[in-house]
Amino acid sequence: MRMRLGTAALFVLPALVLFGVFILYPMVTAFSYAFFDWQGTSRGAFVGFKQFEALFTKPPFTTDLPRALLHNIVFFLATIVLQNSIGLGIASLLHSRASTRRALQTLFAVPYLVSPLVVGYLWSLLLSPAFGPVNTLLRKVGLESWALPWLGDPTTALPVVILISVWQWIGFPVLLYGAALGGIPEEFSEAARVDGARPSQIFRRIKLPLLLPAIGTVSVLTFIFAMEAFALPYAVGGSTGNPGGATDFLSLLFYRTAFDSGATDAIGTSSALATLLFVVIFGGALTATWVLRRQERRLLG
């Protein structure tokens, strides 16, 4: 038995070493940075949780951190509601069109293949108040009052960012739900139809419960995606999340703290922020998975 354990350890060792050197070590180092004082790049004394305290007591964090977190949460909820429900709708509509399903799925996934930086740049060109075709079109068709500075007004900027994101990533739930729908045996629906169930009943009482694991997966992935959103907000609103911080996100705040501020203790505060971000996302994903698993068991069990 002891011999076997040793052999097993030997086989695991290479992977463990690689994991330790390339993932664990950098992560733990980053965590550890958050607990020290920094003078530029030279590490000072151990200061415990002082850097974390600063995140909750010092400007700009006192105003920017709650605002950024709120935007991340709004972004997450809106993405869940819009992207995933529209995605599910499209997926189930496509599912019934066997001949064109493949082609249409590909079409929906095309924006997904373009870098979010490029997508953000293109949309900011399209929506530019001075030359953008969107506002020109709105004026041409007589909707003068709709020709707003879409990305320049805080009330419209965040919704526009969300809509651009939904437009880009809609292919993701379409593909995942498409695959999950394909995994549900046709016999179930047939049997239900024989029993006299309406299509809406079949969807609600058969397909939806069976899709639950897929919905859970998509939701948790969406949570991670939304909490670390960076490229699109950065391309649309810059590192300050303009206008006036209306499109600020946690990762932008991290970027500003680490790379833009030029503060002497930037490494300490930004590491603390990164650690906090990790805890929020990891904790959130953990909780969400746990809740979803329970729901799943309750429904299926």
């Binding site: 993932i23 950098p26 992560m27 180092t29 980053a30 965590f31 940075y33 790049t41 030279s42 590490r43 997966t217 948790v220 992935l221 991670i224 670390e228 990762s251 991290f254 680490a258 490494i267 930004s270 590491s271 990164a274 650690t275 971000l277 990790f278 996302i281 990891f282 994903a285 953990l286 998975t289």
Partner: peptide, 22 residues
């Protein structure tokens, strides 16, 4: 999923982790 969460987050942490110490 948790692995995905951990892996994607490593990116953010690495950004901080790359900053050199003394």
């Amino acid at each position: 999923l948790l692995m995905a969460a951990a892996a994607t987050l490593t990116g953010a942490l690495l950004a901080a982790g790359c900053a050199p110490s003394n």
